[in-house]
Design a protein around this nucleic acid. Structure first.
Lengths: 219, 219
DNA sequence: CGTACTTTTGAATCGCATCAAATCTGGTGG
DNA sequence: CCACCAGATTTGATGCGATTCAAAAGTACG
């Protein structure tokens, strides 16, 4: 399932997913919209990477399957590029599978690489994007290696927020998954942090705001 | 403590840490060797990033300190670039502190950026390096969000190895830290996987090799 | 009003962390 | 060569905290 996009479409997309605004005009023109049903695969291991994908909606997972049937998740993307490294390699090293009905943008790989080569602005964006992902993922790895739920929450606020404050863009339940916790554990830990005064939880315009207490903890 | 490096030095460094081989000649000429004692800070939050650092030896951590004294680890580097994103930003957002006596290479930030702009080969290396880090860190994050030690081990072998086999470059103890486990837990889980036949453990030339069993698990 | 989802609380269980200690290893110096 | 030491490796016992399963209460939406 493939379709071209209008300028109107792009306006909406860039509004919701600002990273798309960096795309140069010729890439936009060549972009195709791809839809994948739940369970459908977007590309397969061994295939030649012909396109660069951006997940607009739904969820796509990068998987490696072993002989004994185990599935190894390498990436989950609900919004963003998938398999950035496929831009550099000659074959896919894993499968991409939609786990929910998904909508993607597909850019011809050659043109994408060409734009990085030729378009200084887009090149700068791409390098900054990768560097930003690296920083974010390093922080996430450090966070996930903390044992206690409370520590992960504090780490998240410190590293993802500004000045000891974060606005939660997703639901608490989705946040739990990102923190590697069950939602029950997260709710309990949050409640306990609130009660002990270490974290203040407010809501502004429907967005949850968490702030670390600057002073001494109550405990 | 700062010193210039000879061609002889570079040969040794590139041997041990192949990523350094990508550095163009003019960056090598401008590189300085920096030493930091345990506890010494390499750069501080708020400072202007003037250099790009590569950790040769020891361990340097990227930290953010909160008002209430908690330290948040954003990155640990024992070999590799530190704070790649500082290349893009005008100020450091965190502190870099050596936690062990460390040796680093420092490249002037302006020259580093210039090389990425002008030197097509180095630019390609840099983009590939960042993309590779992203892939690796995504896999690591997925791995750390697995609950059981056995699952993390299998995920590691599948994602870091080739064809169900990995060579462990570090000691098992260091590997435990990377997997977010205590060494006791890792030893026990490994023993149990060996006993059940799901993982084969051999040693070739002093390097530990782990392989997933292709067939049915014994249990 | 009913449905679907999130939020919240409860109780039981399991796996890992923790603390402790013994064994094994490689390397050093007497 | 042996004694010795600093590591890594291994095994044991205990406790804690997150998972798990269950269910109730709150909330948004048609």
């Amino acid at each position: 399932m493939v379709a071209r996009l209008t300028a109107r479409d792009w306006a909406g997309l860039c509004q919701a997913q600002p990273a798309l605004a960096a795309l140069p005009a010729d890439l936009r023109e060549q972009a195709q919209e791809v839809r994948a049903a739940a369970g459908e695969s977007v590309f397969r291991r061994g295939a030649l990477p012909r396109r660069m994908y951006w997940v607009v909606e739904g969820e796509v997972r990068l998987l490696r399957r072993s002989r004994n049937g185990t599935e190894i998740v390498l990436q989950r993307a609900a919004s963003g590029y998938i398999a950035e490294a496929s831009l550099e390699s000659s074959r896919y090293h894993c499968d991409a599978v939609a786990v929910a009905p998904s909508r993607l943008l597909a850019f011809p790989r050659g043109s994408f690489r060409q734009s990085i080569e030729d378009d200084e602005g887009f090149r700068g964006f791409w390098i900054a994007h990768l560097a930003h992902e690296v920083r974010h993922l390093r922080a996430q790895s450090e966070r996930l290696s903390l044992r206690s739920a409370a520590d992960r929450i504090e780490h998240f606020i410190e590293s993802e927020g500004e000045d000891g404050k974060v606005e939660l863009r997703h639901t608490v339940k989705a946040w739990a998954a990102e923190l590697g916790l069950t939602h029950e554990a997260l709710y309990r830990a949050l409640a306990s942090l609130r009660k002990s005064g270490r974290v203040a939880q407010t809501e502004r315009e429907g967005v949850l705001v968490l702030a670390l207490a600057g002073g001494r903890p109550a405990a």
